[in-house]
Design a protein around this nucleic acid. Structure first.
Lengths: 227, 227
DNA sequence: CGGTGTGAAAGTTTTCACAGCG
DNA sequence: CGCTGTGAAAACTTTCACACCG
């Protein structure tokens, strides 16, 4: 019920940035971090675009949605832009995440180092299977689901990750919402019904392959960028 | 784009279907398969749309891109539409997949049952680590990378899955392309450079979380559908 | 110069609205 | 009737092109 308080600091993050633009911002950030690590100081929109398969104009327009970062005649300073993108995408602050479902995939995600790089960390893991509860993995003790609400509170968890089989996903999702998470990554192959104030991103591995089988079958040369 | 290909035919899969439409077709198929399993015979565009968070018009337009499947006054017959969608997306035929990189995530994907459901099966797994080569997992013996080309040929592999760390991904990708795969799912957090006839879908788990942290921070209520 | 930021034009996708059909 | 398929309108996104800047 509270109003929205963007307060993102200095960026004009008021207006709505199209979703597709946000997804490209993530790609820019990923590439910029690589360039930065490689010691590159500055980059132009056309260089960055070429690296990712976009036009220079698109890079500039996209960045224009969230601020003004460039130096005419020079381009963008990598480290400055990395900082700005992280601010905008939210990864300058830590994000404690709760995972539900510690099967094959859950285990793998617990061990995935890539999350930490962007300030996400899985701080609690839950499973409905009593045989799994109590086991310690990657330093985390698997908890029963009835501890979810308390733990979310205690550990200031804002995001949940659903890694249970499809048929259980909606119920888990309801529990995460009741516990107060603000966003959910859903690895289960079902569409979740959620209150509108809870954000969701779905990752269905079979669907990704399906997109590919369509593209291959139809020899789509159409679009370029990945992810 | 000028004139239309008036009804008549069955699958006018000639013209280019926008990428965003294809991704929704996958969601329709997923939902339809669930409905079918639940015994539902028919469904209208508005029911299907409601289930997924789309408008009825969008469902009809999307389906209109790939054919004519509906019965006025009735809707769509679930089993018919499932078959048609699978034909279009390519999952009525089997897709043998080669996986490269058998770490945490690779292991989890090897055990993931969801692929089989859509006719994908991982028929070979490769790793550069000599300690892993020769191990048998899920009935598959891990092979060295130098066997990639031969195995791709022998097993008629058309798709590859890259599950190696970022720095190795481009090289692996080059090898997959050289071996003749037509499409790649890339789980490594880098953008690959590929010849234009090879299709790619990128899945970067950290980026998915990033999209969520942006959405949560900016209280985006904007868009609805997942995946 | 080389390169940004940005209006205006072109192109694409979504929504509307309605004829037509079983 | 209820619901599809589809042109036409509206909304949105990308590309173009150019003023301006260091």
């Amino acid at each position: 019920m509270t109003d929205s308080q963007p307060s993102a600091g200095e960026t004009p993050s008021d207006s709505t940035v199209p979703k597709v633009v946000v997804s490209r911002l993530s790609l820019y950030l990923r590439e910029l971090q690589r360039l930065q690590a490689a010691g590159q100081e500055t980059i132009s929109s056309s260089q960055l675009g070429t690296l990712l398969g976009f036009s220079d104009a698109q890079v500039r327009k996209d960045l224009g949605f969230v601020g003004q970062f460039g130096y005419p005649g020079v381009g963008y300073r990598c480290d400055e832009l990395v900082l700005a993108m992280r601010d905008i995408l939210g990864t300058n602050q830590p994000w404690p995440v709760a995972m539900v479902g510690v099967g094959n995939l859950g285990l793998a995600l617990l061990g995935y180092r890539g999350f930490g790089r962007q300030n996400f960390s899985i701080v609690a893991a839950f499973d409905a299977d009593p045989a799994k509860v109590g086991q310690t993995i990657q330093g985390l003790t698997i908890q029963p689901l009835d501890e979810l609400a308390t733990t979310v509170q205690e550990k200031h968890v804002r995001l949940g990750m659903i890694v249970v089989p499809g048929p259980q996903a909606q119920e888990v999702s309801d529990q995460l919402v009741a516990a107060g998470v603000e966003g959910i990554v859903n690895f289960a192959p079902v569409t979740l019904t959620l209150p509108p104030h809870v954000q969701v991103v779905g990752v269905d591995l079979a669907i990704e392959l399906e997109q590919l089988s369509f593209a291959v079958t139809n020899k789509l040369v159409k679009t370029l960028p990945q992810e």
